[in-house]
Amino acid sequence: MWKDLIRELYEDAEFAPAASDTEIDQVEGRLDQTVPNELRDLLRHANGVHAEWGAGLVWSVKEIIDLNTQFRHDAEIAELYMSFEQLMFFGDNGGGDQFAYVRLPSGQNTGVYVWDHETDDRKWVASSLTDYLQRRAGTEGDGWFR
């Protein structure tokens, strides 16, 4: 389902081989945050998807762990921005802005948010991973999330 949807939306989509549940569980262990079911399901089909000239449409398990860890623990980043502990970044636009889920105490998924690297603004942009993929592929170009 995920690959078919993404291929319909992005001509240049490149899929990495699927991730195992054990690999995906490493995200939860390292970030102390539940991987949303829809992201887990996509990662089971493709451990990362790149499109739009190499932008990280959906990062691999390794990228999710490494980049979230960097954002959460880098001293220089901490001086510039609010805490990232409540976010789980999973993709980027290739220009510095990142897409994330927000951790809620209930574990409920409230959709996808964008973090603007210039303003530190965090804003809701899509109701689900499917909605994010569709909106991002829309005709609004790079500014679709603004």
Rank of each mutant, 00 (worst) to 15 (best):
A13D: 09
G56W: 12
F15T: 01
I64L: 00
V49W: 02
I24T: 01
N47G: 10
A18N: 10
A46E: 11
E11H: 14
E63W: 04
Q26M: 11
H50G: 12
E28Y: 06
T34A: 12
I64M: 06
L57Q: 08
S20R: 09
W53Y: 12
G54M: 08
P17D: 05
A16P: 06
L42G: 07
E38K: 08
R40Y: 04
K62G: 12
V35C: 09
T34H: 07
A55I: 05
R40D: 03
E14I: 08
Q33T: 12
E14H: 10
I6S: 13
V58F: 08
T34K: 11
F15G: 02
D4W: 05
K62P: 00
K3G: 08
S60T: 02
N37T: 14
N37K: 14
T34M: 05
E52V: 11
F15C: 07
Y10N: 07
A19F: 05
A55V: 03
D4N: 15
G48Q: 04
E38Q: 14
P17S: 05
L42Y: 06
V61P: 11
A18R: 09
N47I: 07
W53C: 13
Y10F: 15
G29I: 02
G29V: 03
V27S: 02
L57M: 10
S60L: 04
G29E: 00
P17H: 01
E14Q: 15
L31W: 03
Q26I: 06
L39S: 04
L43H: 08
N37R: 14
T22E: 15
L43V: 06
N37G: 14
E23W: 01
D41N: 13
D21V: 01
V35Y: 02
E52G: 13
K62M: 09
I24H: 00
D32L: 11
E23H: 07
G48F: 03
S20V: 09
K62H: 11
V58H: 08
E11P: 13
Q33A: 15
H45V: 06
V58P: 12
R7M: 03
L9N: 13
N47E: 11
Q33W: 11
N47H: 07
V58A: 10
F15P: 05
D32K: 14
G54E: 04
W59M: 12
W53T: 15
G54C: 09
A19I: 00
R44S: 01
V58K: 09
F15D: 06
G54V: 06
E11T: 14
N47R: 09
N47T: 10
Q33N: 12
L57H: 07
D4H: 13
H45L: 03
